[in-house]
Amino acid sequence: MRTESRPAALSIEGLRVSIGGHDVLHGVDLAIEAGRVHGLAGESGSGKTMTGLAVLGLLPHGSRASGRIAFGGRDLLEMPVRELNEVRGAKIAMVFQDPATSLHPMLTVERQLTEHMRHHLGVGRKEARERAAGLLAKVRIPGPEEALRRYPHQFSGGMRQRIAIAVALACEPEVLIADEPTTALDVTVQAGILRLLRGLCDDLGLAVLLVTHDLGVMSAVADEVSVMKDGLVVETGPRGQVLREPRHPYTRSLLDALPVPPGENSP
């Protein structure tokens, strides 16, 4: 299944970010390929979220970014805001740990799902609605037709995250950056979402950057794994190698800190 020769869908090179004069990323290198899930692990505060936000041009005020973020032959860091707006949300989408970040509390689920679709994909109202219901079914929202008419607060937290993922997928992006997307979800729902992400990768060639602290999740879906510490990627490699024979002491310490593998003595 490995396609070594495929060019990276998104390539981050020497990314440095400082916020208010304080350096948070010290030259991050990451390449994400179409049809692959790239897992990103690392200590809290190591810069995983900042890396994702830099790709989308969503860094906090007072931030400065340098280096290169190559997408479709262009450098996103150099791209004028107008063009960047066309890319983000449509070609590159992001899902956050807290669905409140991705969803608008005052808009129906239907509007949040169809608005971008109609703008970026140019589909009509009826088709957008059908697609929206289809997406909700895909992320396993019960009663998708009826759910379209409701507002985010009328769903449980887990359901809101599933809706946020559906919104991110609405415009059929090429790159999906998912920052701890299943951390707030049930394992049963998580299993469905991981299968969904894997399927989107395999079937549609989506490139996924999956930020997760959960090495079980990493092991289940990631093709490549990178590990960050203090604003730098300290280790990158194929899943099996990084999780079984880590080279960097920090990766080893993450693995050593795991509780007894869950399910180890279950039937």
Binding site: G216, A220, P262
Partner: peptide
Amino acid sequence: RALLAAIPSPDGAGVLPAELPGDVP
């Protein structure tokens, strides 16, 4: 049993955890 089977194992094997079929009623 379904809950426990849905926990992914960090063994590096790339096995997707078992999904519980059907919707939450």
